[in-house]
Structure formats: C-alpha cells, structure tokens
Nucleic acid binder design. Structure first.
Length: 424
RNA sequence: GGAGAGGUGGCCGAGUGGUUUAAGGCGCACGCCUGGAAAGUGUGUAUCCUGAGUGAAUCGGGAUCAAGGGUUCGAAUCCCUUCCUCUCCGCCA
C-alpha cells in the first residue's frame, strides 16, 4: 500500500508511473486527495472538541472534590453537549477513513524505474540465458507420461482421493521431493539464511499484510469456520513475522528461508498449460525472504537472483531470467525477475521462481519499520523469491535427464536421494 | 469442549472512577564523577494522527493500558463481545 503522505505530495508522478503497469490511477488519486483533505479537516474539528471536553471533565473533577456540586452539575450539561457533538464527528471521521483506506488499497505498487513497458508476458525482457544442449532420445516423453511409466507420481490417485491438481508422489518420486527440499534448505542456510518452519494457515491480518487480501481473495483456500487462509506461499507467514514491528537498523538485513506446502485455488485455469506438474493446487516450495534497508534493497534483489541462478546451475538445468514488464508485474511488486527452466520434452520454458522487491509496499500494510541511524523511523523494504518451487523443477529434471535406461538424477542430489537413476 | 485466573511501556511491575500528566525498578542512550572502568549520580527514553513553525530544532491538540463497542461530565479501573496467555478437567497425535 502506498503511503498517504506520499500520494498527497507525488500525485502526478504516481499517476504517470502506474501507467507502466497499465493502471489508470487518475480518478482514484484525485478522490484520495479530496477525501484526505476532508479527513484532516474533520479530525481537526474533532480534536478541538475533544480537547474542550477533556478540559471540562478535569474542571468538574476538581469542583466535585472541593464540594462545589452545583457548579459542577452546571458544567456537566455543557460537557454532555460536547460529547454528542464529538460522537457525531467521530462517526463521520471513521467513515471517511474507511473510505480512504478502501481507495488506497486499490492502488498497486509503483514500478521501479527500470521496469520495461509492456502488457503481456511476451513483453518481458530476457536479461540472461544459460542454456546447453539437451540430447533427448527418440522415445522421449513429457513428465506426466514419465511419471506413470516409472510409477513415481500418480495424478489419477490424487484425483480420486482429493481432486485434480493434488498428485501423489510415490517411492523414488517422493524421495526426490524430499531430496530437493533438503538440498534447497541446505543451500540457503549456507548462504546465511535462517530456517523457519511456518504455520500453513494464516489469519486475515497476515493475508492482508503481504497483499493477498483484498485483491487475491479468490486465489486462497479459506477456512470459514475459523477465518483462516491456507498459505499460497511461505512468504505470507514468514514476512508477517515482522508485522507491527520496529526493528533496529543493525537487525537488517533479515534473511529467512522456509519450506512449506503452498495452496492455490488457481480458479479459472484450464487446458494444456495445467497438465501434469505444470500447475497444481498443492505444491512444495522453498522460499527466501529478506527484510532490508531501503538504500540496499535493489542490491539485495540482484544477490537473490544470483543465488537462485546458482541453484539452477547446480541442478544442471538450462535457464533464463526475465525482467517482468509493467503489465506482467504483480500488484504488490516494484521489480520482479522471473526464472524459467527449459523442459526439453515439452519444448517449453517453465517458470520456477519469481524474485521480487516489494520496496515499502508490504511494509506499509504491515507497519514493518526500522529505526535508522539518523534516529528516524522508516519503512523497511521486503523481498522474496522462490528458491525453488518443486513441481516444475521436478518436471524439468525428469524430462531433461531421461535416457533409454532410466532417468538420471543430477549429481548434486545424489547424497540426498541415495540413488543416481530412476529405473523401471 | 467445560471451569477458573489473567493481558499495563523494550522488559518486570504498581495501579479497582477524578493532580495517573501510568508510580517504582530493570534495560538502553547521553552527561558528571574516574588515570581508565565499576560503583555512584543527573538527564532522557513509545507509536500514530494533527496544528503552528516550517522539508530543522521547538511548541500545542488528539488517540493508544490486547482489539472493538458500551456506561459516565470523566475509564487502565465498571459492563458487553472477540482474540490471546496461564491453571485444572475432558479429549487426543
């Protein structure tokens, strides 16, 4: 969420820069400024009235104590009147504030200066590519067929027991999942991240804090009886650790890593893009989260990207990095790099990680602040990235490493899997 | 799930309707003292909104004692609702 002061002072610039996100903020910003003026006016009148009432109440107290009951009773009448006034104004003020918040929450984060123009994913700018030849044999199969052929993932069983998009992983398929999770966690820990194991459900405040509510409401599973949300990513609980906190500047950067299941309704997606592991309602992911000083957050974003790239390299996967264009950038993000690995049998690039700097957008919602060296309290910057999401990595590993004799496991994982090949 | 006790500043803790403008302590920061330190001593020590000044210091108003509502001229204090913590019982991996 953008800061009210910032909107007030930079209205024109905000409108211009949000155009890169293909968002027309003109009307909303105008209305915010009008509402905000009204808010301040109303607040001033209310505060003055309350101030009078407070003074009177004190006087009455003193009069009662010194036995001047009649005088006190006379003042009471005045005080009652003021009270009624302030009640009316208070209601008005809270209505205005509610309306104002509703408006502010509609504004997406401002894209970083470097975000390229564009509307769709095809307008994203590929900024680097590390590819190598994947020699596939004649009978090469897409991963969903490999999964059945080697009996390592069972999609039908998932459909029977739960529904589409909830696969079972079996035997070496299950072991491969565990191996990847451990590998990703160990790598992150070696890079200075602290491991957390978060709750898989969060309350409404947390879902709002990281920006899932109100705009992605339908994408989360909601448990109505307890008003809890199943997390779509560990980003939500891990970032919300710091909600309503004022950190010390020496606490920064905070580097956390968490493995979690991720639950996504994925309402409205069908077709060949969702085959096999390409899109699931439930999947596993290791997520890295950082809280950083505003001056250093973009430097940190680059480091996080370099880290994610190192994972792809170690897994011997061809990958490329795209800087998202304005139109593809998420609501809360200022700058995002997408990582895609090449899945040879599908002949497709699969998105496996999204590394973003939210700048102060999440912090503002969460009231995540820090005391800077100059003694001032400022909003911190938050960043996160998948490092990495399992299903598509698994898809790419299976497809790219298939041989007539079985599926080869990348060397770096051998100590985690305990086997080098998946055979029939 | 049932019964009971609670939730006060960074932390501990006093406070059951009116100089509480939240005591006192610890911690922290700065100063004094000291050859240096400890001890001692003094001062300061939340957040948000807002007005004047003005992108500084400063001065003023309002809000916040888990959250929200209510009673009252006046609420940390009384009442209601929700959330959370602890103890006992029940259930249970």
């Amino acid at each position: 969420m953008l800061q009210l002061n910032y909107i007030r002072e930079n209205a024109e610039e905000i409108i211009q820069r949000l155009k890169i996100k293909n968002f027309d903020a003109g009307d909303i910003v105008k209305e915010i400024i009008i509402k905000d003026n009204l808010r301040r006016e109303t607040q001033k009148t209310l505060d003055d009235t309350l101030s009078q009432a407070n003074k009177l109440a004190r006087q009455i107290g003193i009069l009662f104590k010194s036995g001047k009951t009649e005088e006190a009773n006379a003042l009471k009448e005045q005080s009652t009147k003021l009270k009624k006034q302030s009640q009316v104004m208070g209601d008005k003020l809270s209505t205005i504030i509610k309306e104002l918040n509703k408006l502010i929450v509609q504004l997406p984060n401002i894209p970083h200066q470097s975000v390229p123009q564009g509307k769709l994913a095809k307008d994203n700018k590929i900024i680097s590519e590390e590819i190598h030849e994947i020699p596939l044999h004649d009978q090469a199969l897409p991963h969903w067929e490999l999964a059945t052929a080697y009996d390592i993932i069972d999609f039908d069983l998932g459909s029977k027991v739960t529904g589409a998009g909830f696969p079972f992983y079996k035997s070496k398929g299950a072991k491969l999942q565990r191996a990847l999770i451990s590998f990703f966690l160990d790598e992150a820990i070696n890079n200075g991240y602290e491991e957390y194991q978060p709750p898989l459900m969060v309350n409404e405040d947390s879902a709002f804090g990281t920006g899932q509510l109100p705009d992605k409401d339908g994408q989360m599973y909601h448990i109505e009886s307890d008003n809890l949300y199943l997390i779509p990513t560990a980003e939500v609980p891990i970032t919300n650790i710091y909600r309503d906190m004022i950190l010390k500047s020496e606490d920064l950067p905070i580097k956390n890593v968490a493995y979690s299941s991720c639950f996504r309704r994925e309402a409205g997606s069908y077709g060949k893009d969702v085959r096999g592991l390409n899109r699931l309602h439930l999947f596993d992911k290791v997520e890295i989260v950082q809280v950083q000083h505003p001056d250093r957050s973009h430097e940190t974003l680059d480091k996080m990207c370099e880290y994610v790239a190192s994972l792809c390299r170690k897994l011997e996967l061809p990958f490329r990095i795209a800087k998202l264009c304005g139109g593809d950038l998420s609501f809360a993000s200022a700058l995002t790099y997408d990582f895609e690995v090449y899945s040879a049998a599908q002949k497709k690039w699969l998105e496996v990680s999204s590394v973003s700097n939210f700048e102060s957008f999440q912090s503002s919602r969460m009231k995540l602040r820090f005391k800077d060296k100059d003694g001032k309290t400022k909003l911190a910057h938050t960043l996160n990235g998948s490092a990495l999401a399992l299903p598509r990595i698994v898809a790419a590993i299976l497809e790219n490493n298939q041989t007539p004799n079985g599926i080869r496991i990348p060397g770096i994982l051998h100590e985690y899997t305990g086997f080098k090949m998946i055979t029939k």
